[in-house]
């Protein structure tokens, strides 16, 4: 069972992480190519605190706090630059994070941090905790989308200038989206660090940011269920793909491309098309 438990934990952490980006990119339309940096902030915060003797469960809110605070700082960038400029700026934030961590001896530098103390929970309990967190993030997402804030997010994603003209305080909502999303990413990072017990700068680089964005887009940007399913599937795909060994990244890249090429709305749209063909008939 341990293998399945380990896979389920990985899935749950990925779902949580993907949902956190979905809040920013999916709901509020602010594309981020550097989201893994916040996973990293959470992971390093939780790992370092646990090594300093702070109980594991207490490290999680602290990791969220730190990650969310840095998220707000980056959120300010989104007030200044937009769309493709923002995408590249956030990508830069990701590279900057990795570049800085690499040089910090206090954070283990290139070597990373290993031997993160045990949580004291059984593997099963830890998995259940991760699943519960992912489920909570899913519920939070659904709630946010339905409430007033979520509608403003959607409007900003659709047409920011019009919202501004309507007298709505756009910066405040954008910063809220960033704070929420990055805090959740920090939580995912804390779980990640405790799950693997080893973190190094390279684990939070550009590739990881791309991977999580792919999860969101493949799931169907903005769709809570779609993103959850795609994150769960894509996160364990490489392990399942061991069978096709040498070709796994080729298949991964190919699938990503084909999905966008033939179903740009992601899995959510694909499912909708299969079950409601009439909606697509007129297109």
């Amino acid at each position: 069972m341990e293998y399945e438990i380990s896979l389920a934990t990985t899935m749950a952490i990925s779902v949580l992480f993907a949902l956190s980006l979905n809040l920013i990119t999916g709901f509020c339309g602010q594309i981020s190519l550097g989201h893994a940096a916040f996973l990293g902030v959470g992971a390093y915060a939780s790992g370092m605190l646990a090594k300093a003797g702070v109980p594991f469960l207490l490290t999680l809110p602290l990791a969220m706090l730190l990650s969310g605070a840095l998220g707000i700082v980056v959120g300010f960038a989104s007030l200044r630059v937009r769309a493709d400029f923002l995408a590249i700026t956030t990508m830069g934030v990701g590279f900057l994070f990795v570049g800085i961590v690499r040089q910090q001896d206090a954070l283990g530098g290139e070597m990373g941090i290993s031997a993160i103390p045990d949580t004291g929970m059984s593997k099963l309990a830890f998995m259940l905790l991760a699943v519960a967190m992912a489920a909570a993030a899913g519920l939070l997402s659904t709630y946010v989308r339905r409430c007033w804030m979520g509608r403003v997010f959607a409007a900003i994603a659709e047409d920011e200038d019009t919202v501004r003209v309507m007298g709505i305080d756009v910066p405040r909502f954008k910063l809220t989206a960033f704070a929420l999303g990055t805090a959740l990413a920090g939580l995912a990072g804390g779980l990640y660090a405790q799950h693997l017990k080893f973190i190094a700068p390279d684990s939070f680089g550009f590739i990881e940011s791309i991977t999580v964005l792919s999860m969101v887009v493949v799931g169907g940007i903005g769709s809570v269920v779609g993103v959850s399913v795609s994150a769960a599937v894509l996160s364990v795909l490489p392990s399942w793909f061991q069978v096709i060994g040498d070709y796994k990244l080729l298949v991964y890249g190919g699938l990503l491309f084909l999905m966008m090429r033939f179903s740009p709305g992601g899995m959510a749209a694909l499912v909708a098309r299969i079950f409601h063909p009439d909606r697509w008939g007129s297109k």
């Binding site: 341990e2 380990s6 896979l7 693997l196 684990s203 490489p238 392990s239």
Partner: peptide
């Protein structure tokens, strides 16, 4: 098992080998 030289891939690979 391929681990892509990444800890994220190596952990499930090791668990799978063992279990």
């Amino acid at each position: 098992y391929d681990d892509q030289a990444s800890p994220k891939e190596a952990a499930p690979a090791a668990t799978k080998l063992i279990e």
